[in-house]
Design a binder for these strands. Structure first.
Lengths: 207, 207
DNA sequence: CACTAAAGCGGAGGCCCCTCCGTTTATTTA
DNA sequence: TAAATAAACGGAGGGGCCTCCGCTTTAGTG
């Protein structure tokens, strides 16, 4: 269960998204990226207890390499989680660029469902991380709601959805996804919830 | 680190202090008691990460036996913790019987310092247990403060301490112990705090 | 007592964690 | 391009976790 109190939890972990700091050697960066990639899959599939040795093997590196990059399981979890959030926020911009505003919003919400799904996989570790490392929470929740706000405002401005809602209402509605029971058909249910929500948002739009 | 979500945490753990339920076979009870005893020492000494195999060995049983009695580390921690609380409350009655009221109070507070000390050892696991298993918290904190209330009221009634304090004030003052830094001289400091507090309580008593 | 079913025991075995350090490789310098 | 060197690699090894199941002990019963 829990680890010794003495070891330093990832409080002051390296900010994974500022590539400056110390330009990793090419091979190191390659391995590190591959590890995070594989870990993301593994955590999503098997929960946070996925075997680190297995992850190292699948990434084609030795277990020692994994531990050099990520001294504790929590470090790895944190990096994977931040990457997930990053991806989600990035997707908001991309979708906004490539689709009509309301479609972008809908697609993003579907993506959000995926995000919550992985978050569930990470649940236990995240609960600990979020209480230990308070910046992580404020950081990420702020970013996500910003991304959503952007999409909602664009769609409203374009007249594709009604104008009398704001982002926090939508986020609140999405909360239903979060608290829904963990049944096998959870994903489908959530998909339908998003569609329903979009219908509600489109209803009475001027465009 | 964290365990699978699927396994049943000690939510509905057996109430360790109701010896009914299913009278264990004599040897089983012997082993179980010994395990708890040894575990209490081990957790206090090494923290919750103490080796379960080591505990089993020191209790003179096989690791299988330990796991049969306590399917997870948390089960064992919970039982040890409850036992600690039990002991503390029992001590209140015993001390009250064997000593003058104010002395009993002082001795009990010293004992409370020990209790907090072990609680610190168990800190990480306890934090998880207390959030997971909400009855544990209300249960134990209520019991402890009751025990203290009894002692304070008796001492006040006997005129050995001033009458204008109540138990919750004293508990509040003891809170200083809890939040004091984890330095090596913590125990001595806490001992002095208790003495100081007693002086304060005795000052102006009528007897 | 002697017998027997049920309860309890215990440790081998499989898996995982994490550290340590000799070997390999990317980059820099000449 | 070749040598030098700092960085990175990887896996063996020691230890802990937990399960599984054949063996032992206990508590009844005749």
């Amino acid at each position: 269960m829990e680890k010794k109190l003495s070891d330093q939890p990832p409080e002051t972990a390296e900010r994974p998204e500022t590539p400056a700091q110390k330009p990793l050697r090419a091979d190191a960066k390659r391995n590190r990226d591959k590890l995070v990639e594989v870990a993301a899959q593994a955590f999503a599939a098997d929960g946070v207890d996925a075997s680190l040795e297995e992850i190292a093997k699948r990434a084609g590196v030795g277990i020692g390499t994994l531990y050099r990059h990520f001294p504790t399981r929590e470090h790895l979890v944190e990096v994977v989680y931040r990457r997930e959030v990053e991806g989600l926020c990035l997707a908001a911009d991309e979708l906004a660029r490539d689709h009509r505003a309301d479609v972008a919003l809908e697609l993003w919400m579907q993506r959000f469902v995926d995000y919550i799904a992985t978050k569930r996989g990470l649940a236990t570790s995240l609960r600990i991380l979020l209480t230990t490392n308070s910046t992580l929470f404020s950081d990420t929740s702020g970013r996500v709601s910003n991304a959503l706000r952007g999409l909602v405002e664009q769609a409203a401005a374009a007249g594709k959805i009604r104008a009398d809602v704001d982002a926090s209402d939508v986020l609140h509605a999405l909360g239903g996804i979060y608290s829904a029971p963990n049944t096998p058909d959870w994903r489908e249910r959530s998909g339908r919830l998003v569609k329903l929500l979009m219908d509600g948002l489109r209803f009475g739009a001027k465009g």
